[in-house]
């Protein structure tokens, strides 16, 4: 089965995540309102929008931390197996459906070493190999071999994230940028097919940002993992994403290639901001659009 997006013509196989009519209500607040989109396999999909638009809430629905009020979230694995994510408990979404995520405010096991963080991520695999602890405790079965393999996988991702020299340091001791990369490496150690990154570049300096971009590209290229990311830094979005979805007040306002979205007047007005001399132009455009819609 082919994975590279360019090689196959558009077919159902190309879609890894399909979100249909997703709505999430917090009390009286409609944080997400009838939101639908599709993410293609092997692509980097960016979800953008102003603060409070509901981006993190979308992630929380996909990864099972919130149960959506309405809507259907379908994940289709390479093998063709399909999962309805809104019906799975959060940990099974990672374990069975192979969706991994990071958090807007980094959540590392700060008192454990960098290596240990990556080993915890391989919990389910190791648990099975250790015969659910019993066999491993008695020293029988393949736990030792699996444990060695898990360290190799951890090493691989440490190399990729440029953290190999810090492997034995506490995660809480890393710099902010390194912590961001470690969180991504840790998510990759769960061997996901779909990776959700919540503002991975927030707070990074340009050099760290560049390292991050490199890491994301290599994830897509080497591991064949499809990525969805929330990002504020437009240069990052335009540079690495294949597909952009724009959210405002819980509604989708635009969806398409970075080029398309960049030139969408609704997006410009809502999010990108505009040059001073273009303001009037944009307002006129938006007003004529609104007028059309109302009248």
């Amino acid at each position: 089965m082919t994975m590279a997006p360019g090689n196959t013509t558009m077919s159902k196989d190309d879609i890894i995540l399909k979100v249909e009519h997703l709505s999430m209500k917090f009390g009286g607040l409609m944080a997400i309102n009838d939101f639908s989109f599709e993410a293609k396999r092997g692509e980097i999909t960016a979800l953008i929008g102003p603060n409070g638009a509901g981006k993190t809430t979308v992630f929380n629905c996909i990864t099972g931390f919130y149960k959506p009020t309405m809507g259907m979230i379908t994940l289709r694995q390479k093998s063709g197996k399909e999962f309805l994510l809104e019906r799975l408990p959060d940990f099974e979404i990672t374990k069975k459906a192979k969706v991994a995520r990071t958090f807007q405010n980094i959540r590392l096991f700060s008192g454990m070493t960098v290596l240990e963080n990556l080993l915890v991520a391989q919990h389910n695999k190791l648990m099975k190999a250790s015969g659910y602890t019993v066999m491993g405790l008695l020293g029988i079965g393949g736990y030792k071999a699996e444990s060695r393999r898990s360290i190799e996988l951890a090493e691989h991702w440490l190399e990729m994230a440029d953290l190999i020299d810090r492997a034995d340091d506490p995660a809480g001791d890393l710099s902010y940028g390194a912590q961001r990369r470690l969180e991504i490496a840790r998510a990759m150690c769960t061997e996901p097919e779909f990776l959700c990154l919540d503002e991975p570049a927030a707070g990074l300096n340009p050099a760290e940002s560049a390292t991050l971009n490199k890491l994301l590209r290599s994830i897509r290229a080497d591991a064949g993992t499809s990525i969805m990311l929330i990002e504020h830094d437009m240069s990052v979005v335009m540079e690495i994403s294949d597909h952009v979805v724009v959210l405002e007040y819980g509604r989708k306002i635009s969806d398409g290639t970075p080029e398309h979205v960049k030139n969408d007047p609704k997006v410009i007005a809502a999010y990108l901001g505009v040059d001073d001399d273009e303001v009037e132009d944009v307002i006129a455009t938006v007003e004529s659009l609104d007028g059309g819609a109302n009248g």
């Binding site: 990864t63 931390f65 959060d90 940990f91 099974e92 979404i93 990672t94 374990k95 991994a100 995520r101 958090f103 959540r107 590392l108 096991f109 700060s110 008192g111 454990m112 915890v120 991520a121 919990h123 389910n124 840790r186 998510a187 769960t190």
Partner: peptide
């Protein structure tokens, strides 16, 4: 260290 991160890593 962090229960939510555990759940995000597939730990029951």
């Amino acid at each position: 260290e962090d229960e939510i991160a555990c759940r995000a890593l597939g730990i029951n």
